[in-house]
Amino acid sequence: MLELRDIYTNYDHIRALKGISLTVREGEIVALIGANGAGKSTTLNTISGIVKAAKGAVLYNDKNITKSSTHSIVKGGIVQVPEGRAILTTLKVIENLELGAFIRKDSHQIKNDIESVFSRFPILEKRANQLAGTLSGGEQQMLAIGRALMAKPKILLLDEPSMGLAPLVVKGIFGIIREINREGTSILIVEQNARMALQISNRGYVLETGRIVLEDSSASLLTNKKVIEAYLGG
């Protein structure tokens, strides 16, 4: 349902992506792993239309969205949870969730969906009227994911959901990511924590300095010698 065809993206005059091609099929979890600066976030930002590809095409359900605006891409169902969570710290937790549903107009259903985010993340209900900036790192990640779900995404782009979180919290978050996927949302996940990402995904791509150097099922990537050496800590 999502396909990148030979994408080149420049970022601050640096060639960040040099011919990336990848696909995400309906119902899949796809992992994009690689070192810092390999171009993982740039890939997601190109899909979301925050940076525009210089060459190549982003296809979504066979429609070319390479030049679409970010908000129309979100409207179409591709929703990103950016790196470092990027929650709105000066707004309340509940307001963050309401804004997650900005593209929707079914206000009654929105209320129900806020309730279901609360039942998925009970801590957010407790903190509903607090400023989002007062949340802990793990709670912020939950809010960021919950907020993205409010847009009813067809594809969820997750940028480093494990960043800066304690191992136990990461485990919880990944469990929830799997759950969201089982409920029918396709997921493209970018991670430095390659092991975690490959354990929950169906397929994976390895990104090195703007190029995809390896692509395989996640199970085989987990046993691939090169991957083990470079990304799974020997």
Partner: peptide
């Protein structure tokens, strides 16, 4: 209001606001 909250979201971070589908 919905648009008022969108204004506050953009005030804090236009990029995040765009990722929420707000026409910045």
């Amino acid at each position: 209001t919905r648009w008022g909250k969108a204004v506050r979201a953009v005030a804090e971070n236009p990029r995040t606001a765009a990722l929420l589908g707000i026409p910045v």
